[in-house]
Design a protein around this nucleic acid. Structure first.
Length: 225
DNA sequence: AGCCAGGCTACCG
DNA sequence: CGGTAGCATGGC
């Protein structure tokens, strides 16, 4: 028996914000492709999702996007070109996304991994072995790039759903299981839901006001209704 | 002027 | 396991 709360929250968020069009791909006519779930279409678009997922770790999408825009003229988002790129130029390009020393290595490792796959989709266990790809990044890649039924958990998911009294854990896999057990098994829904959580979370669950007892900005603590 | 973003690895007890 | 230091930019 499913706990319908998870699905109901999804429907409310969708009604409030509309479709989010994730994962954003920068060189489409509109990078947020609302309602279109058959992307990515090309090999380089597929790899672009790896790049974006790593670059946006602990960083705003805005800054990850700057790094991607720097990377595109240098590589066209082809993994082979990324590997051929001089390491210092790679680092320089991704400085806006923070941790350039770490992330440059992560991107190179991911590129080698991607090439070795030879157009095959990786398993979750397999992709988690790549250094720099942890639970959330893995699930983002699997869900948005490969259309695999993997629910993505992020910091906002913990904040929102613990605030709603729907979970007391801070364990990634426990949280993921909870969503997957209680939602329709539908890839576009998984894709849309995580995007909506990020949208809602970034608007109302920013850590700063949410964590402050004395905030005069009462609405930050407001739960979604 | 601080505080914090669409985390991950490594290492601690 | 759970907890956390370190990573080292730019916007708000």
């Amino acid at each position: 028996m499913k706990n319908q709360f998870y699905y109901q929250i999804y429907k409310k968020l969708l009604k409030a914000y509309g479709p989010q069009g994730w994962w954003p791909l920068l060189h489409l006519p509109q990078k947020y492709h609302c309602g279109q779930f058959d992307l990515p279409k090309t090999r380089n678009e597929l790899f672009e999702i790896y790049l974006g997922a790593i670059l946006t770790q602990n960083t705003t999408w805005r800054q990850a996007e700057i790094a991607l825009n720097n990377l595109f003229p240098l590589t066209g988002f082809a993994p082979e070109n990324l590997l051929a790129l001089d390491e210092n130029r790679l680092k320089e390009a991704i400085i806006p996304a923070r941790y350039a020393n770490q992330k440059s290595n992560y991107l190179q490792t991911a590129a080698r991994f991607f090439i070795d796959l030879k157009e095959r989709a990786p398993s979750r266990t397999e992709i988690l072995k790549v250094k720099g790809i942890g639970n959330e990044t893995a699930d983002c890649i699997l869900l948005y790039a490969y259309h695999q039924l993997e629910f993505v958990i992020d910091a906002y998911t913990y904040r929102i759903f613990s605030h709603l009294g729907l979970n007391d854990t801070h364990n990634y896999l426990t949280m993921k299981q909870l969503f997957e057990d209680n939602l329709p098994q539908h890839v576009p829904l998984y894709q849309e839901y995580h995007a909506l959580i990020v949208r809602h979370g970034s608007l109302h669950y920013s850590k700063r006001p949410y964590g402050k007892k004395d905030s005069t900005l009462g609405f930050y603590r407001r739960s979604f209704k």
